[in-house]
């Protein structure tokens, strides 16, 4: 049980906090509940988060 909880926690690459992001999918955008940074799930096994890439010139609607 303890192990599962540990596995669910992942480090925010921006503020370094250990955060619980729940069930996620690859490339999903999540928000760090501590610092508010927008993060992308770049790997699932293990879960790795990266800060969203810089906005590109033609991004948007």
């Amino acid at each position: 049980m303890e192990k599962a909880e540990v596995v669910d926690m992942v480090e925010c690459p921006v503020c370094g906090s250990e955060i619980d992001i729940g069930d996620v999918e690859l490339h999903q955008v999540v928000e760090c509940p501590v610092c508010g940074a927008e993060l992308e799930v770049v790997s699932l096994n293990p879960i790795v988060l990266e800060e969203l890439p810089e906005v590109e010139e033609d991004w948007g609607e």
């Binding site: 906005v55 010139e57 033609d58 991004w59 948007g60 609607e61």
Partner: peptide, 11 residues
């Protein structure tokens, strides 16, 4: 207002 012809979010 000078607007780029592409892009969004007011960039």
């Amino acid at each position: 207002v000078l607007k780029p012809v592409f892009g969004s979010w007011g960039r």
